[in-house]
Design a protein around this nucleic acid. Structure first.
Lengths: 342, 342
DNA sequence: CTGAAAGCGCTAACAC
DNA sequence: GTGTTAGCGCTTTCAG
C-alpha cells in the first residue's frame, strides 16, 4: 500500500540537482539555466511529478501581497435555475482560462452566504464571487481585512467596498413599461420574486415608475419565487379575477414561461392576442419556437467576462479601486407581445 | 496594509496556552479539558480565527491513509444542459452536507478529462466525480496509485477499477421500444447524440434490439448533440423526407423538446396525433403543460445520493471494493405519445 | 545560476 | 491533559 506521492525531492534526486532547482524549474519567472530546467522537467515527467498546489500556497503564504491558493470561491443560490447554471458554466470556463480553480459552494438562502464565505475562507481563496446575494457588512469587512477581493454578481452593495457586476434592473423595468405603454396596454400586472428580493424590487420599481409617468397604475402584483411553478400559479390567480390584465411583466423568463404555459394550455388563452407577456433575462428557452417570449435581455456573456476580469485584476492588484459595473438590458422582440398600436 | 491572518499562535497567546492546545480545541476527537477548550474557542472567536484548511491538510499529509484536503474534484461537461446543472446542484449540496468542498472543473469535451484530473490532483483532492465522461486507463491507474477514489456518474467503465453510478441505458432503450411497439408504431426514428457517445449508443442499442424482436427495423437515425437546436434540426430533416416516422425516440428530453417545438410550431404537426414523441431523463421542462412529454425518467435524486454516499465511503475506506450501481429507468406517461392500441 | 536553510500554519507523536 | 518537537512539500532569501 505505498501510495506516497512523489515530491520535488524525488525529482531532485533523479535529476541530480537540489530540491530548490526543481522548484525553480516549475516557477515561471525563476532564474534557472535552460539546461537544468530541461533536465528537471524530464525527470519530473518520467516520475509523473506534479507540484503540490496545496504545499505551494502554504509556503508562499508569507508573501505580503496575498495568499495564492489559486482558488476562487463561488457562492451560488438557486443553481437549478437555468439562468444561474448558465452563468456558473460561463464563470467556470473564464476562471479556469485565467488560471484559477473554482471552489463552489451552494446555499439555500441568502442568509447562509456569510457561513459559506467562512467555509470558503478556510481554504484561503484568492477571491470570491457571490451570485445574487449580498454579504453582511461585517463579512465584507472581514474580506477586506484579509485582502480577499469580492465580486457581487447580479447585485450591488452601495455601502460596501466590494466590486459588482449587474444589469441595471430599474432601467430594465422602465424599458419593459415603456414598451407595454407604447403598445397601448392599460391593465398591467407584474409577477415578481419574494417580498424582500432586491432584484425583483428594482425591476418593479422602474416598471411602476414608468407606468405612473403615463398615469397608469399597476393592476396586480403577484409574488413568485423564480420557478416555473410559481409563474404558473401566479397566472392562475391572475386570470381568476374579475378584471383581467391585458399585459403581464415577469421578473424572470422562467416565471414568464410558467405564465405562458398556464395561460395557453390550462386556461386556453391566446398569448399576444388575449394578453401580452414580457419576461426578463432572455434564457435560451425564451426563444424556443413555441414560446417566442419577448423579454429584456441580460448580456450574460459580457457580464461574466467583466466579472472575472475585474476580480482577477483585483486579485493581482489588491489596491485596485472598487469597481461597480452596470449593464443595460435590451428589449428582445418576439411574438408574445402585441406590437405598438399605430 | 497589514492583512496578516491570525494563526493558532495568536490564539494560543491570547488564551495563554500552547499552540497545540489550540489545534486540539479545533480537532473533534482530541483529548483536551473542557475548560481549556472553552478558553481557546473564546479567544479564537474574539480574534476572528478560523483554522487554515490548507495548512491543515498539509500537515496531515503524512498520514498513510490519505491526504485529507477536504475537497472533492468534480469534472463536468455540458454544464449548461439542464440535466447536468441540476445534477451539479444536487451533488454540491450532498457533498457539502457530508463535510466536503467541491472543486469544480468544466471541460468542453471528453478528451480534456485527463487534463482536468491532473489539475485537480495538484490540489490533492480526496476524491473525484466525473460526469458523463470516462477517464483513460492510465489516469485511472494514477488515481488508484495515489489513493484517490473516483466516481463515474452517468457512465461506467468495465475494465477500470472505478466506482460508477448510472442508469441502465440499454434497458431504458428497451423500455422505450416496448412502449412504442405496444402502441402499434411501425415507422420509428431515433435521435441520438454524436457518433461516439456511449450513452446514446447504449440507449439506441437497447431500443433497436427490442424493436427487432418484433421484426421492426429503425426507419431513421438522426444525430444530434443533446441541444435543443440539434433536436429541432433533426425534426426538420426527419419530416422533410418522403416517408414520415410515426414515432420518434430521443436520447434526451432537451432534444425531444427541440423536436416538439419544431414539429408543432414550425411544421404545424400535432404531437401524439401525427406522431408519438418519447424523451429520456425527465427534466422538469418535460412536465410543463405545453410539453407534456412522455419520457424515461432517471431517478436523479437517488443517483446523486448514491454517488456521493459511495464516494464518501470509499474516501473513508480506501480498501473498499469497487462499486458499480445501475438504476432502472421508469416510463413516465404523458401526452406526447399515442396510447396502447386496444 | 545554484544549493543550503529557514519557514508557511498546522497536526501528531512524544514526553511529562 | 498539556507542552514540546518534528515535519507535510514547497518557495524564497542568502551565500556562494
Amino acid at each position: 500500500m505505498n501510495k506516497k506521492s512523489i515530491t520535488s525531492y524525488d525529482v531532485a534526486k533523479a535529476a541530480g540537482v537540489s530540491q530548490s532547482a526543481v522548484s525553480r524549474a516549475f516557477s515561471p519567472g525563476a532564474s534557472i539555466a535552460k539546461a537544468t530546467r530541461d533536465r528537471v522537467l524530464q525527470a519530473a515527467s518520467d516520475l509523473g511529478y506534479q507540484p503540490n498546489a496545496i504545499a505551494r500556497s502554504m509556503s508562499s503564504a508569507r508573501i505580503e501581497t496575498q495568499q495564492k491558493s489559486g482558488m476562487v470561491g463561488v457562492v451560488v443560490t438557486r443553481l437549478q435555475d437555468p439562468f444561474f447554471s448558465r452563468t456558473i458554466a460561463g464563470l467556470s470556463q473564464n476562471i479556469q482560462a485565467r488560471g484559477w480553480q473554482m471552489l463552489l459552494f451552494t446555499v439555500e438562502s441568502e442568509s447562509e452566504v456569510d457561513a459559506a464565505m467562512n467555509s470558503l475562507m478556510q481554504y484561503k481563496i484568492d477571491g470570491a464571487i457571490i451570485m445574487s446575494a449580498i454579504l453582511s457588512d461585517q463579512m465584507a469587512e472581514t474580506c477586506q481585512l484579509r485582502g480577499i477581493p469580492v465580486m457581487l454578481y447580479n447585485r450591488s452593495a452601495d455601502g460596501l467596498n466590494v466590486n459588482s457586476v449587474q444589469i441595471d434592473n430599474v432601467e430594465g423595468g422602465r424599458l419593459a413599461a415603456e414598451f407595454l405603454l407604447e403598445a397601448g396596454h392599460e391593465r398591467i400586472a407584474f409577477v415578481g420574486g419574494e417580498e424582500d428580493d432586491e432584484t425583483s424590487k428594482a425591476r418593479e420599481s422602474g416598471f411602476v415608475d414608468r407606468l405612473s409617468e403615463d398615469g397608469i397604475k399597476l393592476l396586480f402584483h403577484e409574488e413568485g419565487n423564480y420557478t416555473f411553478e410559481s409563474g404558473r400559479e401566479a397566472a392562475l390567480r391572475l386570470f381568476s379575477r374579475n378584471q383581467r390584465p391585458d399585459a403581464i411583466f415577469c421578473a424572470s423568463d422562467v416565471m414568464a414561461l410558467g405564465v405562458l404555459h398556464a395561460a395557453r394550455y390550462e386556461l386556453g388563452l391566446e398569448v399576444q392576442k388575449d394578453f401580452s407577456l414580457l419576461g426578463f433575462d432572455d434564457i435560451p428557452e425564451a426563444s424556443w419556437p413555441g414560446h417566442s417570449l419577448t423579454t429584456i435581455r441580460q448580456p450574460i456573456r459580457r457580464m461574466i467576462v467583466e466579472a472575472v476580469d475585474v476580480l482577477v485584476e483585483n486579485m493581482q492588484d489588491p489596491e485596485m479601486l472598487t469597481r461597480r459595473t452596470s449593464f443595460a438590458g435590451k428589449l428582445i422582440l418576439r411574438g408574445s407581445c402585441r406590437r405598438t398600436v399605430l
